[in-house]
Amino acid sequence: MATDSTDTTRSPVLSVRDLVVHFQKKSSLPFAKPTSVVHAVCGSSFDLFPGETLGLVGESGCGKTTTGRAMLQLAEPTSGSIKFDGQELVGLSRKEMGEIRQNLQIVFQDPFGSLDPKMTVGQSIAEPLAIHGRWTDEEGPGLVAEAMRHVGLDPKFASRFPNEFSGGQRQRIGIARALILNPKVLILDEPVSALDVSVQAGVINLLADLQEKFGIAYLMIAHDLSVVRHVSDRVAVMYLGRIVEIADKVDLYSAPQHPYTQALLSAAPLADPKAERQRKRIILEGDVPSPTNPPSGCRFRTRCPKAQDICANEIPDLIDRGQNHAVACHFPEAMKII
């Protein structure tokens, strides 16, 4: 169904088609039937090309984190296909997936929860090597030191524990741990949202440097539109489990076509008082509906200023409207948002 921005000249390193992830919400009583299904991701399709950054933005509960976790089978896909370098990942055994994970690593949001407080920083960074049987006493310590240097940490602190490091430094440790296996793809799940702005800037710069140096592809999951614009080549916007718009970043930010993307951009504040005074905000009514009982047809229709009857009856496909700019809307219209 969905024809998203597929580039025929390059082959994607990660190719996702019609990904569906549902969670059974279990009843708290024993032997009771499962009460409801959370439709976390419903038919997402996108490609990630080598060395590029695809930003995945949306508000809480839109399914962006679940999408990221599904890439690593940390959330089990209900249906659909995820291909890494042409190889299908859905349905792989734990062991087979383990092999592939060397090329597919993740950096988590919380720099405090994602490091084991009882392991030294060096041990944490070395652990992926040990898990994949690549640790040797001769080369291991050198690799750890190199990974620390790559992320801007002094290797002489490898014997320290996480509590001695600041939030930004811990996030660098998490990045070093993900890098040590030389992955081709890095899933970045809100890597800077827990950090203060001045520290956040350092981590964003670091990620750009690493991509330039190693040609890693990033799937950057974030809610901050400004950060995503800064780091991404292409951007996908998610709403309630579906990708509603995907395009090159310049197209998406300068001429968004989906009413949700437009509202999102118009609501995001700008650190520019003169621009702020001139802005006309599109204020959406109400809240995001529950993913256990999503609206029929277009999921955005309950809050959409353009909604018509057709929006309740037919799910709009994600259709390429030229220049790899795909939109899932019955009434798409490019609009400049200030």
Binding site: S198, A201, R229, L270
Partner: peptide, 21 residues
Amino acid sequence: HGLLGAIPSHAEDSDERLSQI
């Protein structure tokens, strides 16, 4: 200065590095 230089903008493109304190 450092705070203002550290935040990217969603209104314009910039390949410049963010300032980091």
